[in-house]
Structures are given as structure tokens and as C-alpha cells.
Computed example of a mutant assay.
Amino acid sequence: MKSLAVFILFSLLASFSHSIELDFCVGDLSLPRGPGGYACKDPANVTTDDFVYTGFRGEKPTTNIFKNHLTLAFSNAYPALNGLGVSLARLDFAVGGVIPVHSHRTSEILILAKGTIIAGFIDTNNTAYYKKLEVGDVMIFPQAMLHFQVNVGKIPALAFVALNSANPGLQITTSSLFDGNLPTELAEQITLLSHQEVMRMKTLFGTH
């Protein structure tokens, strides 16, 4: 028992020491991503610009089917996040725009910067937790829960989110069902939608 306790303590200390072994590990996008992220860029080639992300600047088009625009600052777009366990995104909504039901491998925290939205998530008991948010409000979406945002105001809305992974993933439910290679027959069976409705959705998403 004593040896087990010593082993656990040693493992914890080792993990803590690993987290501060390097000052940073800017991802080298020229190399394949592994389970722990990207390999580190040679520090001799790292500059201040590596730590600055400018992708959130300016107006964003919101002309897609959902009247939104997602700007993702994940590690593949912002390599300085590599290994830090955090990522960011900007959410732009036209009037009536939505971020449809989706999920990540991680938790998410949202702060509303402009407009009025309804945001919420659905837990595994099918209970929906949702609320109208005003500017400055913050909401948390727990790990892997289906969640969504809807602009219910009279002006465009803007929100920023942070996620506790450098590569949290993004799976939009409707896109997964109708914008991929899932056969029409299977889509009908697992959604209980009619053939006509499934074909309509596939046409909307450009897969038919």
C-alpha cells in the first residue's frame, strides 16, 4: 500500500513537472498531429506573431443556410494554443441566425458581446437548459452536451467562446446527418423522417 501511494505521488509530480517542462510549444503544422497535439515548432523560428491571432477582426458574412459565421481559433488555425488545453471561437449571427445543435469533446463557456440570443443545452435526460442572454452575460455548456444558440433580437449578434482543449472538435448534428455519406435509407430510419424530407435536407446541404 505504501509503495502504491509513493508510485501515485511520483506519477502526479511527474505530470506536474511535464506541464512546465517547456515555456511553450507552438504547433508545427508541417508535421502530422498526434494524440497529444502537434510537435513543437523549433523555438529558434518562433516569433511574436506566433502568439497573436487576428482572425477575429472585421465583419463576417452571415449568408449561409443558418445565417451565421463561425470563426474557429483551434490549434490548427492558432498554433500557439498547441498543448495549452484551450481554444476560442467567434460566433456571428444575422437577425434570425442560429448556431444549430452541435457538440464538442469539451466544455464551452460563452460570453455575449452584442445583441440578444437564446442559448441552451440538452442533457442526457433530455432536459433542456436554456435562457435569453443579454450583452455581458456568460453561459457554460458542459462537456459533450448538445447545445445551440439563436439570435432572437432585432440586430445582429456576436459572441465569443472558449473551450478547454486546443482541438475540441465540432460536430453539427444536421450536417452530420445530411452533409456526409450517410445513405438516404439509413437517414430515414434513424431520424423517422420521410424520404421527401430527407431528400430536401440533403439538397439543402448540397449532397444530392
Rank of each mutant, 00 (worst) to 15 (best):
A119D: 08
L9D: 08
F93W: 04
G96F: 00
H102L: 04
D92Q: 09
T106S: 15
C40K: 09
F178E: 02
Y38P: 05
A73K: 10
Q171K: 13
G37K: 03
I172Q: 09
V26L: 03
D49C: 03
S165C: 03
V161W: 04
E108F: 06
G27Y: 05
L88F: 14
L177K: 12
A14L: 11
V152T: 11
M145K: 10
N151Y: 14
Y38F: 09
Q189L: 10
L110V: 10
L193Y: 13
Q143C: 12
I118V: 15
T106E: 13
G34F: 04
L133Y: 06
A166T: 04
T116H: 12
H102Y: 03
A14W: 14
L186F: 12
L72C: 05
F16M: 14
T191F: 07
P100C: 08
G34E: 14
T71K: 00
I190N: 02
K132E: 15
R105C: 14
R57P: 00
E197F: 12
L146N: 12
T207F: 08
K132H: 05
D23A: 15
T207V: 10
A5C: 14
F178H: 02
Q149V: 14
D50N: 12
L192S: 15
L204T: 05
T124Q: 14
G136K: 01
F7M: 14
V6G: 10
T174R: 13
L9R: 11
P168L: 06
D49Q: 09
F10N: 11
V152S: 05
G115S: 04
L88G: 13
V198D: 08
T207H: 08
D50A: 15
P168A: 01
E134N: 10
M1G: 07
G136P: 04
S176K: 06
T116E: 09
L13N: 13
N126M: 08
L91A: 14
F51G: 03
N151D: 14
N126I: 13
N151E: 13
L72M: 12
A144M: 10
L170M: 06
A73P: 06
S15W: 10
K2G: 15
G169D: 04
G115F: 06
A162L: 12
F24Y: 07
D137W: 00
L170N: 09
L110E: 06
R33C: 09
Q143A: 11
N64G: 05
V135Q: 15
A166N: 00
T47E: 02
Q196D: 15
E185C: 01
R90P: 11
I190P: 00
N125T: 12
R57A: 06
A157F: 05
E59V: 12
N164L: 13
H208A: 15
V198H: 00
L133M: 13
V46R: 02
L163C: 03
N167A: 15
L70N: 11
P168H: 03
G206S: 00
L204C: 01
T47P: 00
P35S: 01
G34V: 01
Y38H: 07
H147E: 04
N64E: 00
S15N: 08
I140W: 11
T47I: 01
Q171W: 11
S19G: 11
L88C: 09
M201P: 01
I155C: 00
V161P: 00
Y130M: 14
A73W: 03
P183R: 05
L72W: 02
Y38L: 09
T207R: 03
